[in-house]
Amino acid sequence: MAINNKKKGKGAVDFTLFLSVMMLVFIGIIMVFSASWPESMMKFGNGYYFLKKQLVSGILGFFVLLLCMNLDYKIYKKFSFPIYILSIISGLLLFTPLGVEIKGATRWLNLGFTTIMPSDIIKIGSVIFFAAFLTNKRDKIDSLAHGTIPALVYIGISCGIIVAEDLGTAITLAGTMMAMFFVAGMKLFHLIPLTVGAMGALWYAVNDPDHPHRIKRITAFRDPFADKLGSGWQVVQSLYALGSGGLFGLGLGKSRQKFFYISESYNDFIFAIIGEELGLLGALFVLILFMIVIWRGIVISLKIEDIYGCFLATGITALVAVQSFIHIAVVTSSIPTTGITLPFISFGGTSLIINMAAIGILLNISRHVNFGRS
């Protein structure tokens, strides 16, 4: 479904995509408020603390979405390299006095008036640049020297900086960029050494002695109930939340697990609170909204005639798909625990604004698509 805006000389906007994202943001604001109430009261004496911050981020994100929606996406190709360099620099700033440690991890930059997560900036910057790279190399993508090796170098640079902050986020970006590379026409034979190398790098990252919590998460994934008071605590509590929700849920605001049983209940495990309070039906509704967003993104990437627009739409869609899949898989104990937020829903100003900016870009690409009767 699309809205035509010919009076202003613009093409069609994918209204289905726009509406689905705004519904996710709205649900996110409500669920952040519900899930964060106990911690807001304990730490700040104000149950509305996280709600206010998320609401402000949502409003700012909405205006950023509108701006990106009305800015020709082709301009990003022209400035893709400077955008990429700036995003990489933002990640390197974590190793300066601007980097601050919160809850045992240095993932934030303290700008004085606010804190931001460079990993979110690197993700969108990498997608914009990688789409331009694939466009420029489209006739040599299947070449080892001119296609595969340079692509892996850029993927390695982007993910290498992020892995110092968070392994899960690095995996998300790697999956996104590999999806773009696959769509661009990478030679499948090159996947063999790539897979071996990726598995080796992942093994090293998991067993890194400087990050002992990673191997504990693998152990907890295999049997979380074996150490349900230790390494398996978070996963067990998440499963309790989902199980107690039943079909219709306990009711909005009536979660029990958010009362300090699940840490980061308004962030990395917010889908568990959704399942507990809104039940299976509520969780399925959120899943359907994400499926609609991904479906519309795929349609846009398939129908856009411009090759850069195709790769850029693919990257943005894959970023949302991979991140949401990992978050939900973690909450349901389908994969080992990692700190990944749920796009548009989890608490986090940088994440919400960047994700809405990305959707704004995708909506602008949709203006150049002839949807017909879709």
Rank of each mutant, 00 (worst) to 15 (best):
M178L: 09
D210F: 12
T114M: 09
T176W: 00
G125T: 11
F129E: 08
S126A: 14
F133Q: 13
G125L: 00
L144Q: 14
G104E: 14
I141S: 01
M177S: 09
A170G: 06
L191P: 06
V163C: 15
A105L: 09
P209A: 03
G104Y: 00
R107P: 07
V153M: 07
R107C: 07
H213P: 03
R138Q: 05
A151F: 14
H211L: 00
H213A: 11
H213Y: 09
A170Y: 02
N207D: 03
G200F: 15
K123P: 14
A164D: 00
L173N: 04
G99R: 01
I128P: 01
M199F: 11
F129Q: 13
A205L: 06
K187R: 10
V183E: 08
V196Y: 02
R138M: 07
A201W: 12
P118Y: 07
R138I: 15
G156R: 14
L194T: 11
G156S: 10
L152T: 13
R138C: 03
N110F: 11
A198G: 07
A179Y: 13
L152P: 02
E101C: 05
I102R: 02
L111M: 08
S119L: 10
K103P: 08
G197W: 08
A170R: 02
V163D: 01
I124N: 02
W203T: 11
P97M: 01
F95A: 05
F95T: 08
I162W: 05
A145R: 05
V153Y: 09
D120K: 07
T135D: 14
A205G: 02
F133A: 07
P118W: 04
K216D: 09
A205S: 06
V100Y: 12
L173S: 04
P150T: 09
A131P: 06
L144D: 10
F189P: 04
M178K: 04
R107E: 14
V196G: 10
G112Q: 07
A164G: 07
D166K: 10
N110C: 06
V163Y: 02
F189R: 15
